[in-house]
Amino acid sequence: MKDNDDLSDIIKLISDIKHKNILSSYDVALRTEKLLENLISHGKWDSALELMDLVKQRIKCFSQSLPDEPTASNIMKHILKIIRDEYQLVSKKKGETHSLQQIVKGDSSNVLDYSENVSNLRSALLDHLSEYKDELETSTENIAAQASEHIHSNETILTVGKSRTVEKFLKSASKQRLFNVIVVEGAPSYLGHSMAAALAKSNIQTTVIPDSAVFAMISRVNKVIIGTHTVLANGALRATSGIYVVALAAKHYSIPVMVLSHMYKLTPLYLGSNDHDSFNICASPASVIPYSFGSVLNSADIKNPMFDHVPPELVTLFITHQGGNAPSYIYRLLSEMYHPDDYEI
C-alpha cells in the first residue's frame, strides 16, 4: 500500500490515458513533464540517486501498465539524463567521460554514484525543466516553421491518416506556397477523412484516395510527409498500418519520405523481429467486419493490426524541432536524449 501511495501521481496518469481522457501524445508529454516537475519540487528526496530511483519506479510502473505508450517513458528517461547532467554540473565532478584506458582497465573509482547531497540541485533542475517544458510546447511550431524549406510551389504531397504535427506543417506551408495534398484514407479507422476535411478548411487543394490506390497515385507525388507513433533506435518506424506500403511505393519511384517527429518519440528500443507479438497490437476486428455479420465469423479469422514496421532504409529524412536528420543519425540524437544506463529500466 505504501508503494501505491507514492506512485499515485503516475497511476492517475495511467488511468487518464486508459480512460481516454488524454488522447494525443503531445498532451501525454506535457502531463508527464508536469508530473516530474511536481515530484522534483515537492517529492521527498535528498540526493540525486534517490530522485533517480523515484523516477525509475514511475517508469517501471508506467511501462508495465501501458507497454505500447512510449511517450511518457521517454520523457521520464530524458529527465533522468537531465538529472545526471545537472548533478555533474552542480557538483563539478567529472566522471562521465570514460577514457579508453578506464574502460579497458575496468576502473570504476571515478564513476559518479550520485549519492552526494547537493544543496542547489533542486533549483538547478527546476530551471532546466522549465526550459525543457518550453521546448516541448514549441516543438510543433518549430517543426511547422521548417515547412517552407521542404515544400515548394505546385508540388504534390502525399500523407496517410491523421497526424496533428503533419496538419500544422502543411497549414504552415500553405501560408506561403500553393500545393496539392493527397490524403490516404487509412482504412479501417478512416482518420484520413477528418484530416482531409481539416486541410480543406485552410484552403489547401486536397484529394482523398483509398489505401488500394496508393501505388497508382504515387508516381505523380513529389514528397511523402507522414507522422509516426514511435521512432526506434535504428531509425525504423512503428507507424500506423498502411504506411509501409506507402514507403515501399515511394522507394520504387525514388520519392523522398519525410517523417515529422517530436524528440520524445525517439525510443531507445531495438526491434527483435517485427512479427513478434509484442511489436504490434491487434485492435478489434469489428471495424473490418461488424460483429453482427454472424456465421462467417465462426470460420474466418479477422485481424486488424494497428502498426506497420517501416525499416530505416525507406525513410529519407526525420524532421524534428532541431532540423532535418537522416535515419543513420538517430543513434546520435538518442545519446543526446538519454543516458545509456537508462535505455532499459
Binding site: P290, Y291, N298
Partner: peptide, 9 residues
C-alpha cells in the same frame, strides 16, 4: 444488448 446473428457460435 449486442447485435449478433443466427448461426454465430
Amino acid at each position: 444488448f449486442q447485435e449478433s446473428a443466427l448461426g454465430h457460435r
